[in-house]
Design a protein around this nucleic acid. Structure first.
Lengths: 169, 169
DNA sequence: CGATTATTGACAGCATACTTACAAATTGGG
DNA sequence: CCCAATTTGTAAGTATGCTGTCAATAATCG
């Protein structure tokens, strides 16, 4: 029996969810960076700043759970934010291992100023769709990300992290 | 006039498309790597192999357009595929600058063998949704990626690339 | 034809994203 | 209370994904 011939098209890639998610992430980052280039801030750095503003005095491990980042990656991200003077690290009083994270004044000001650019970026990502389709896509993505949470190596642990944080903070 | 107080929640991140796309990409890669770990192949390497199978003798620059990868990144990807003996680089006859890419026998065999694992991975990504919602999400993502094609730094140029490739190939 | 321009692959550098490993510090069980 | 297990930050290693630049080669225009 002859083997099936190799397909001539790229459909094994183009029509698959994995490719579409990679491609859309690529596009989303490009749009974000373009809209925010006056502030020299990446999407990841923005998310970290928002999380630190929401939870002042959080430590790096809990922060990684709150924004679903790898702990190792986050170390470098915080270093860059610290070198730009948007974030401060202070040693923990009770636990000498941890370093508590705080926004500086410059960090808080940056977050306030960058908001319009971030909003423009987020709007542009869905702009090509009709308003009803934007809502539908957002709802489906929210659902899917939530239901697949445990599948990623660094699941989002917003609630757990907060609870633990309140105890020791 | 008092300023608006800083929000207490992470909604400025969690509910935004940028975050959802990053998160879903993270999840998609984790699922792909897990299903394909017996083959030690990443999603990017898989896409490159499929593209080379579809267009034997393509050069690196055209390949980057066919899978919407950065040209610089692609160099390293090809190096890894070459060191695993899945891909061969041969100098171009007419144009001495280019290096033509071909699948090796091992590369072709790998692609055939890995297909079930890739299919499992792609299915798992959408698994938590109801079938109708899977179709809807796929359709919306396909639309959005296509309509936003020019927004990314490395737009997909499947047709252009192919045309140019036929001329000189 | 000859000079400018464009293309190709390579390299360096920065930023995410993950793995494993490690030392220091803390916590829990016996 | 002490030892074992755990937690925390950090580091090294690999892999994407982007920015530049560069030299060699091609293509084009005057």
């Amino acid at each position: 029996m002859p083997n099936k011939p190799a397909p001539v098209t790229m459909d094994a890639v183009y029509t698959k969810p994995g490719y579409l998610f990679r491609r859309m992430q690529q596009i989303a980052v490009a749009i974000f960076v373009e809209e925010c280039k006056a502030y020299d801030l990446t999407p990841v750095q923005y998310a970290a700043l928002v999380a630190i503003r929401t939870h002042p005095g959080i430590d790096a491990t809990r922060l990684s759970a709150v924004i679903a980042f790898d702990r190792s990656t986050l170390g470098n991200v915080i270093e860059r934010l610290e070198s730009k003077a948007y974030v401060e690290r202070k040693p923990g009083r009770e636990d000498k291992r941890i370093k508590l994270l705080y926004l500086t004044k410059a960090g808080g000001a940056l977050l306030r100023n960058i908001m319009p650019a971030v909003d423009r970026a987020q709007a542009r990502m869905l702009q090509p769709l009709r308003p009803a389709d934007r809502k539908a896509l957002l709802a489906l993505m929210t659902q899917l990300v939530d239901l697949n949470n445990e599948a990623s190596r660094v699941p989002l642990r917003a609630e757990d992290a907060l609870e633990h944080f309140r105890k020791s903070g």
